[in-house]
Design a protein around this nucleic acid. Structure first.
Lengths: 216, 216
DNA sequence: GACAAAATACCAACTGGTTGGTATTGATAT
DNA sequence: ATATCAATACCAACCAGTTGGTATTTTGTC
């Protein structure tokens, strides 16, 4: 109930709690369908606290997109797909990792900023831009490994670049989330990543090892 | 103003006008952010007329998804990508056609049912299912050409099927729309289709002809 | 084919609850 | 002390949906 005092520091401050519940609720219900009151109730704070930390609901939208950028950056930096010595293996390990973190509950693995960008692209440009920066910033973290893989494998990309392929990874991931939601079936997101894996192997001229696909 | 009398039949009846404006406004602003009053104003009808034709706002959501299914089915049936005699050429022509209908204004070419499914997937299952039926129904229209292309080219798909590849087309299209919205740049949707074209040629072992890509 | 009855299509005004946002007051840390 | 942070109480605008009614079209009957 109370404030971020030294008596209850484990709860975190009101701002952080609001960002955490916003991340979870917005991912499920979307931005417009989520009320400020609902966020305050879930975070255990009052509206006074909300509008102390955020000057408007849109301002929270920008803040939660930035919050997503920070937390996912940390998450992916610590993920195991960076360990292989061979750059193409790292690229393929990224795809496998994205596939592995898909769970049964759709809101648990889908992307907040993809949802936000889709919903507010023409009504709240500031939120859209914060969401876009998150997506494209994450895509950029893949470019170095792709570029290194091109060199290591000695291939000559015809009509594509590390940057465009990195963006295409996000395209397939986001599109997979849409189909998973539309079909209410997480396997559709896994299937998308299986095709992406096949595409990358195709581009680099390597064959797939035994894989547990869900394609039918 | 008036009603669907024989005096002013050209306006269409109130229900059709509401579905048309809903299609356009929902694609831009999303479902929750669009009010019934806004739809009525745009259609030139009153709220009484709205709730005469639709028992609730959600009911309109289902109806507009079905309306989208009908109009896009007609549109794609009449599209020129069916004309090539070779099935793989028809498949590639579909991708080229999807690329060609991308315009400068994002809401003009993005997908209503993809947007709807993403936004209401866990709050309005009936709308989500109507949107899902639209997406997966459209995907199914591609399966026959893909299957025929497999036979005609004598390839042996390893880990994929006509159905899964048809779904992947929709994945890439929907993902391209998300990136186009997030980056506020239609070229990102074109770039996604360029990668899809390359993937299909890779699967069928054919080389790309000179292409006007936007990848950088 | 005339005419009443029923069904359909539509409208203007209204309602009760909800919305994002504010004003004021009180608590805590330094 | 005083700046920061948060609780309470509140508001005007807006929301989906309802009411009670009128105009038009269709249907049934003779």
């Amino acid at each position: 109930m109370s404030r971020p005092t030294k008596l209850t520091p484990e709860r975190g401050d009101a701002r952080t709690r609001l960002l955490e519940v916003a991340r979870d609720i917005l991912r499920t219900k979307g931005f417009a369908a989520t009320t400020v009151d609902a966020l305050c109730d879930a975070a255990g704070v009052t509206k006074g606290a909300f509008f102390h930390h955020f000057k408007s609901k849109d301002d929270l939208g920008v803040a939660v997109a930035d919050f997503w950028t920070e937390t996912t950056s940390t998450f992916f930096e610590g993920a195991p797909y960076h360990t292989p010595g061979d750059p193409l293996e790292r690229v393929l390990a990224y795809i496998a990792f994205r596939r592995a973190i898909i769970t049964d509950n759709i809101p648990d693995f889908t992307c907040l900023v993809g949802t936000l960008a889709q919903e507010v692209h023409s009504t709240a440009p500031e939120i859209r831009d914060a969401a876009g920066a998150s997506i494209f910033g994450h895509a950029e973290t893949l470019e170095a490994d792709i570029a290194a893989a091109i060199l290591a494998r000695g291939i000559e990309p015809d009509g594509w670049t590390p940057a465009s392929l990195a963006r295409h990874f996000q395209t397939v991931i986001q599109g997979g989330f849409i189909l998973a939601k539309a079909g209410n079936d997480p396997d559709l997101a896994r299937e998308a990543l299986d095709h992406l894996d096949r595409y990358v192997r195709c581009l680099f001229g390597v064959h797939a090892v035994a894989q547990s696909g869900v394609s039918q």
